[in-house]
Design a protein around this nucleic acid. Sequence first.
DNA 1: AAGAGCCCCAACCGCCTAGCC
DNA 2: AGGCTAGGCGGTTGGGGCTCT
Length: 252
Amino acid sequence: MVRAPFYDKSGLKKGAWSPEEDDTLRVYIEEHGHVNWRSLPKFAGISRCGKSCRLRWTNYLRPGVKRGNYTQQEDDLILKLHQEFGNKWSMIAAKLPGRTDNEIKNHWNTRFKKLAKQNPTSSQLAKEQPCKHESSPTVTSQNTELGAQSGPKFDASVHQILESSPLSPETFSSDSSSLSSNQASASTTTSWFNESSGDFWTEPYQLYVQSNYPDNYMREEEVLSSPSLTFYDMGDMDLFNQVMPTWQENID
DNA sequence: AAGAGCCCCAACCGCCTAGCC
DNA sequence: AGGCTAGGCGGTTGGGGCTCT
């Protein structure tokens, strides 16, 4: 499951954490806090880099960290927040008490790969319907490229789902992703949306939103009133539409 | 039963940003 | 203003466990 422990050139331990190391780190942080991660391992007597300690603490040892089994509310909320924030896992995690960005990221990746695989209609749609981002030449060329590179149907459906994701073009390209480059393509995407017609695209977003979250979750109105709910949120409705039925079935 | 392939997730890596000098 | 450092973030990888054949 995890990498086998080993020591790097500088003598720092890497790979899986032992229970003893966990205890040492937990006890030290509970007693002294974590003012300086870089010097923490030295004072705590752990042969790890500070970064590794921070990660272990935030993702595993920190009190209140929930593990496994996502509730339907959490799944729904992750979907919703991903529409707003894209792959900003830390921002999504901030709205999900007890969940870490790393865990949500893993959950999203594995869950959506699985769902995309289970939903053959999405790959069918990719063939039969023009890509909704077609107005963007850059994205279109990338789609073609990706389609050629990846053979299996599975990949096509995954790509289609992820293309609908806010950051998808850049995320899937070989270039590094950035918000600004996404925002740069906003105008083309928006123009596509404005030109489109049909019930689906005019359906209110609320249709897909459950309003019965506990108070500690982000409230629906908070999401809807968010100024960042712009072009890509509506673009992501495609993703939502494809995945939600399967998602719900799996949960039920 | 056993080998192959896939899934899942902890951990790592590289980059970016904020803060300090 | 520019360089340095530490912390944080998102993407990727490694490998044990699970499922399939």
